[in-house]
């Protein structure tokens, strides 16, 4: 019988299977923190999350705090949490279009949150505001001037952050690097359309690893050089998501691209 994916000599899968960690950094570009209304999280605070991340060798988790996304927690407070684990945590400044006064203040204070803050997080499906709405413009302009990334929750079929509106905004702001969280989950043709039209767009994979053949199709249709690893931590287990990448029927180069090479090409190694 042919050897299983976990037994391929010298592969990442073999290393992770044997040791639970490999000689590569993992960059998790989509995390959260804090409790959730609908889900019990046993480990949703920084110390417990960091312990889980260290086990598998995550070099950076970039997160947006649940409470700041939901409008009840200021980003400066998230910065203070991030600063307790500067060797592993980075933050996105959470943006709610319903709190324009907070946005103005966050942009004024951005320099005091950088470099632990590396960009912004939009959550249009939850805030029920299209990403093309003028209330996002101050942030988009700020990110464009400074060439900062924005992680945007995206979903197939969404009027707020589906492929059509994301293509529109990514075309309008070519200096912004957009990370499409969930890669328009459920709409691979839409993702491909945006990928073809917008070179400033990358596709983040939260909730997709583990779904049978989806990583293979994203690599084939969009290319592994446009994919970024993410987990929604503390929603999803790092081993589960890494396992979904490692066991996908893709090349070893594709796996390296997804787990760390692409983001190191974008942001470097020193951030």
């Amino acid at each position: 019988m042919k050897k299983a994916v976990w037994e391929q000599p010298g592969s990442l899968a073999e290393a992770f299977w044997k040791n639970g960690i490999a000689d590569i950094p993992i960059y998790d570009m989509h995390g959260h923190m804090g409790s959730h209304n609908a889900i019990y999280f046993a480990r949703c605070e920084a110390p417990e999350m960091v312990a889980h991340l260290r086990r598998i060798g995550v070099r950076r988790l970039v997160f947006s705090h649940h409470y700041s996304l939901m409008g009840s927690f200021r980003n400066q407070r998230v910065h203070a949490i991030t600063a307790r684990f500067p060797d592993i945590l980075r933050m996105y400044v959470s943006i709610s279009p319903h709190q324009t006064d907070f946005i103005a203040e966050d942009l004024d204070q951005y320099d005091s949150m950088a470099p632990l803050a590396i960009g912004f997080k939009f959550l249009p499906d939850y805030h029920k505001v299209k990403v093309t709405d003028p209330r996002y413009e101050p942030v988009l302009n700020f990110a464009s001037e400074r060439r900062l990334p924005i992680l945007v929750h995206t979903w197939g079929g969404s009027q707020f952050d589906g492929p059509d509106v994301m293509q529109e905004v990514a075309t309008r702001y070519p200096q912004v690097t957009f990370f499409m969280a969930h890669s328009f989950s459920g709409d691979l043709p839409g993702a491909k359309r945006v990928a073809d039209a917008c070179p400033n767009v990358y596709f983040e994979l939260t909730s997709l690893p583990g779904q049978h053949t989806i990583i293979e199709r994203l690599c084939a249709d969009i290319g592994s050089h446009r994919l970024l690893f993410g987990t929604d931590m503390p929603w999803f287990d790092e081993y589960q998501h890494v396992g979904g990448i490692l066991s996908a029927d893709i090349s070893e180069d594709d796996k390296h691209n997804i787990l760390y090479r692409n983001i190191e090409k974008l942001l470097g190694k020193d951030w």
Binding site: W17, Y239, Q240, S247, A248
Partner: peptide, 18 residues
Amino acid sequence: GYPRFGHGSTMLSIRHSG
């Protein structure tokens, strides 16, 4: 969960469940 899900991801999370 095949065919909705693949085999490998839960294998690794069990293997390294601690």
